[in-house]
Amino acid sequence: MINQDHFSRLNQYRSMWVLVFFDLPTETRKDRKAAILFRKNLLDDGFSMFQFSIYLRFCASRENAAVHIKRTKSRLPKQGKVCIMQITDKQFGMIELFHGQKETVPETPSQQLELF
């Protein structure tokens, strides 16, 4: 019989968070349009804004994370810097988040229905 605590712990190492960091130029109208489209594509793909140029998405598995990473890579703007990082749910759970000097609790991910 599988211990439920063991299954939960294993799931924390299997489920992933995908973080997208970006610094995109906005000097010209064309640059702004590309930056807006990149951000819109992230939102349409289920990412949420964590900070101004940091978006994140919870993925139930490494395979699911790979799908969203591939999709993000296919929509990269021609200019600017983009970084994609993935971490386990366990690692994300150890984040220390502050607003000013006051520590806050990270928001839990919204439940997302995924159809395969």
Rank of each mutant, 00 (worst) to 15 (best):
I2Q: 06
I2A: 09
N3D: 08
Q4G: 01
D5S: 00
D5N: 07
F7Q: 03
F7N: 07
F7A: 05
R9N: 14
R9K: 09
L10N: 03
N11P: 05
Q12H: 03
S15Q: 05
S15D: 02
M16P: 03
L19V: 06
L19R: 07
V20I: 15
V20N: 00
F21V: 02
L24V: 14
P25L: 10
K30R: 13
K30L: 09
R32Q: 06
K33Y: 11
K33D: 15
K33C: 04
A34S: 12
A34W: 11
I36W: 11
I36M: 06
L37G: 00
L37A: 13
F38Q: 01
F38G: 02
R39D: 01
K40T: 15
K40G: 05
N41L: 12
N41Q: 05
L43G: 03
L43T: 11
D44Q: 02
G46W: 01
G46T: 12
F47P: 01
S48A: 10
S48L: 13
M49F: 10
F50L: 05
Q51D: 01
F52S: 14
S53T: 15
Y55G: 03
Y55R: 04
S61E: 10
R62E: 15
R62M: 08
R62D: 06
E63H: 07
E63R: 13
A66L: 08
A66S: 11
V67C: 04
V67R: 13
H68P: 00
H68R: 09
H68T: 07
I69D: 03
I69V: 10
I69F: 09
K70H: 12
K70P: 02
R71N: 04
R71Y: 02
R71D: 04
T72S: 02
S74D: 03
R75P: 00
R75H: 09
P77C: 09
P77A: 05
K78V: 03
Q79C: 10
Q79H: 12
Q79L: 14
G80T: 15
G80S: 12
K81D: 12
V82A: 13
V82S: 13
M85G: 14
Q86C: 04
I87P: 03
T88D: 06
D89G: 13
D89T: 10
K90T: 11
K90R: 12
G93R: 10
M94L: 08
M94E: 13
I95G: 00
I95W: 03
I95S: 15
I95Q: 07
E96K: 12
L97Y: 01
L97P: 04
L97D: 04
F98S: 11
Q101Y: 02
E103K: 14
E103I: 08
E103D: 08
T104W: 07
T104Y: 05
V105I: 14
P106R: 13
E107S: 08
T108K: 15
P109D: 06
S110W: 11
S110R: 08
Q112T: 15
Q112N: 06
L113N: 05
L113F: 15
L113R: 05
E114N: 09
